[in-house]
């Protein structure tokens, strides 16, 4: 059997997850190319392919006109991976989903211009097509992606943790943001990243989305108990998890 053919596609996103692929360094990247064949990757190459073993789709589904392109990728690919937060959960793009006036706010009276045709909400790719696996995170963790690729190469379901980021902070003995007078969303955020943000001195913003059954009520209470104004506490988790909140 030849090497699996892999394609990368981008929708509404910053394309940072694709950029992360360039950050493996020489040895790891060249080794990766021994096991997969990158056949389509608009950002880095001009070639195109008919059939794909794995399609990695970056970016959110935000315009009805994108549905056809997504369906085309789905039709060509055996396995579809939503690649990064925007594709997997809507990511940062969904931060304005709860607003009803964002188009008018940004475009004024030109809001109905056909150029700006857009869904009201930024949605994960799976809102348009079936997604087999999700790579979480903003940006995605490039080593977790390697593990996922390894699993798929061996026909094994990739393991993605479903416990909160607190587990990983504690494992690396990071001081809790709350103990430093800050706030954090680590208690409701899905782990797997290794908790780099609190270790770097900033709160977790839950870029990998919520764990299954996040305790949103307790989150709001804890934030308020630690001095956050109520309105901010109520809206805090919108940054990366707006599509996953109970009020979404």
């Amino acid at each position: 059997m030849g090497k699996p053919k892999v394609g990368f596609f981008d929708f509404s996103s910053c394309e940072g997850c694709q950029i992360e692929l360039t950050n493996y360094g020489d040895a790891d990247f060249l080794e990766l190319l021994n096991h997969i064949e990158i056949v389509e990757f608009r950002e880095a190459m001009s070639e195109k392919a008919d059939h794909l073993d794995i399609a990695c789709i970056e970016g959110s589904f935000t315009r009805e006109s994108e549905r056809k392109r997504l369906e085309d990728i789905r039709a060509r690919a055996d396995v579809v991976i939503s690649f990064g937060a925007c594709a997997s959960t809507g990511g940062i793009n969904a931060l304005k989903n709860h607003q009803s006036d964002f188009k008018e706010y940004v475009y004024g009276k030109d809001a109905d211009s056909p150029h700006l045709q857009s869904n009201l909400k930024a949605l994960p790719v799976e809102a348009a097509i079936k997604v087999d696996y999700k790579v979480l995170g903003c940006p995605m963790d490039k080593y977790e992606f390697l593990n996922i690729v390894s699993s798929l190469l061996h026909g094994k379901t990739p393991y993605i943790p479903d416990y909160p980021v607190c587990v990983e902070c504690k494992r690396r003995e990071t001081i809790c943001r709350f103990d430093l007078g800050d706030h954090c969303l680590g208690m409701v955020a899905r782990a797997g990243c290794g908790a780099p943000c609190p270790a770097d001195g900033i709160p977790c913003e839950a870029c990998r989305g919520f764990v299954t059954n996040p305790n949103e009520d307790s989150l709001e209470k804890v934030l308020i108990d630690h001095g956050m104004p109520e309105e901010r506490a109520r809206t805090k988790s919108r940054m990366f998890t707006n599509t996953m909140r109970s009020d979404a």
Binding site: D28, E31, L32, N34, H35, L146, N147, S150, S151, L153, H154, Y159, Y163, P164, C166, V167, K170, R171, G186, M187, V188, V211, N213, P214, N215, S218, L219, K221, V222
Partner: peptide, 28 residues
């Protein structure tokens, strides 16, 4: 109010539960 975050377990000196996962290197 529990977040099911496991912090109480993770910092506990007498907790010793573990999970086991296999992982391939890049050479597959």
């Amino acid at each position: 109010g529990c977040f099911s975050c496991g912090t109480c377990n993770t910092v506990c000196p007498t907790c010793y539960c573990f999970d086991v996962h296999d992982q391939w290197n890049l050479d597959q």
